[in-house]
Nucleic acid binder design. Structure first.
Lengths: 181, 181
DNA sequence: GGATACATGTAAGATGTTACATGATTGT
DNA sequence: ACAATCATGTAACATCTTACATGTATCC
């Protein structure tokens, strides 16, 4: 049970909501304005083939006169997806980029109990704090050798992390009181 | 003169500062706490080979008893790097992720006049504003179908963009008054 | 003498990008 | 009839990751 890419898990998450075709999935990526995810057939279809090979999804025979095939999650697919969702955020996750973490978080509400979500946010806020401390430390030592724009860009990064930590604490409070956003 | 990857341009930027070896470049990635950039030899050496093939850098013969080879920018390499630096930020850049833009911005202070930097920030702030407007629009339409964590994650993304727009305006002011950060 | 840091590369494998190929259905 | 959208895939290509291979210089 080795892990798949983020794209694989996102597809799993969308198929957890309801069975869909490759085309449906691509359209979601086209129409959603966030997304590092490409709607290109060259990304989506091979990813679906991969998931099928792993036994995480099944494809129906072509339906409806069209060649449309609906993909649906298998039991092991759901298990793999839940295992992915349940991973607590690590320092490495924080360094490698918050985006993946947000994608994971976005799906959590559909499948995990509030306490797990809250724990995720707690850990995330703490991990970000630690990383910010490292970033500040480095800035103190290295600022002298940096250009103006270098320093400003660096500060933008730090500020971005701080924004995320503050968000995590606000989100935690919202989840705790039952979820009025 | 097709374009290279971000890694290529970052290497170019570091070599613009001073000639360095592949090892030197890798160490920079190891020791800097930001970075999506990997210090793995399997990324850096092939990228340097690519830049050499393009005629953007030259490699000295092994020096110093060691096998160390120093890479340095050629005139066309510097031109290609400057062309990359001078690109104004586009809407697509903003959607694909701010990170690349910050990397570019970080190098700008070393090579471009303040007015160009200011123009970059102006355009960036406007492009972000536009994108935020789209994101809000989508949220209004789609919020009903989203889970709590889905909505929260989405809002984190929007907030992140807003933070960046505000940063761009602050950075602009700092550059204009000569660069006290 | 042995560990650690210096130093450069290649090999295998997975993933993603862009472009191509093919054909059915729906709306005008 | 024709265009647009639905629908699924493959092919070529570049890039990155992880792991391997090799050898030198320095410090203790």
């Amino acid at each position: 049970m080795t892990s798949d890419t983020i794209l694989g898990y996102v597809l799993l998450g969308l198929l957890h909501q309801e069975p869909r075709s490759g085309y449906d999935l691509r359209k979601i990526f086209t129409s959603t304005p966030f997304s590092h995810f490409s709607d290109s057939p060259g990304a989506v279809y091979p990813a679906l083939a991969r998931l099928r090979r792993r036994g995480w999804v099944t494809a129906s025979a072509p339906t409806g006169g069209r060649r449309k095939r609906l993909f649906r999650l298998t039991a092991t697919g759901r298990k793999a997806w839940l295992a992915w969702l349940r991973q607590p955020p690590t320092g490495t996750d924080v360094i490698r980029g918050m985006d993946h973490l947000f994608v994971r978080f976005a799906f959590m509400g559909e499948a995990l109990p509030a306490e797990v979500v809250v724990r995720f946010l707690d850990t995330l806020a703490r991990e970000i704090d630690e990383h910010v401390e490292d970033l500040r430390q480095f800035r103190r030592e290295a600022a002298a050798g940096m250009s103006i724009t270098g320093r400003l860009a660096y500060d933008a990064g730090v500020e971005s992390y701080e924004t995320h930590a503050a968000w995590a604490r606000r989100a935690r409070a919202i989840i705790m009181q039952g979820g009025e956003s």
